[in-house]
């Protein structure tokens, strides 16, 4: 087993509404779906964003899409129209979530890497 940033096995996108942030985390390969379910938990995401004091983290699973949706309340320090942060939308926070360390079997990681490389060299 090897520990890597979540960025090695998943991609993500944030959206904001008011002071609520959502981060969709999507597996790069079906073989890492279980890793997302087991390791990208509400508790770990809340801890990762503790400095922004989330009032709640709710996780929704979408196995059809190999995706999970994290809904994180009150981390935008007022939201885009009240925050002092340069990124008041919290748009960059998807990549903070992608720093979460996850532990993956080495052969599974190799499978993900092969998939990404195949995508990277489209004819």
């Amino acid at each position: 087993m090897i520990t890597v940033p979540l960025h090695a096995i998943a991609h993500a996108r944030t959206g904001d509404k008011g002071n609520r942030l959502n981060v969709a985390v999507i597996a790069h390969h079906p073989d890492v779906w279980d890793v997302l379910v087991e390791q990208v938990t509400e508790e770990r995401v809340a801890a990762l964003l503790a400095h922004r004091r989330p009032s709640a983290v709710r996780r929704y699973l979408l196995p059809n899409l190999y995706a999970l949706n994290l809904v994180i309340d009150d981390v935008l320090e007022g939201g885009v129209n009240a925050a002092l942060n340069l990124d008041g939308h919290g748009k960059t926070l998807s990549f903070l979530v992608l720093t979460l360390p996850v532990t993956v079997a080495e052969d599974v990681l190799a499978t993900v890497r092969t998939t990404l490389d195949a995508r990277a060299h489209r004819p």
């Binding site: 991609h11 959206g15 959502n22 969709a24 999507i26 979408l62 949706n69």
Partner: peptide
């Protein structure tokens, strides 16, 4: 990948995305 990212963009409960015309459930998509 590009489509899945946008399906969930600004969505909260994926079984109940509220709009004026319908409550959208994307969990079976």
């Amino acid at each position: 990948r590009s489509v899945t990212e946008q399906i969930l963009y600004e969505v909260h409960d994926p079984a109940a995305y509220l709009t004026p015309d319908v409550t959208l459930d994307i969990t079976g998509v």
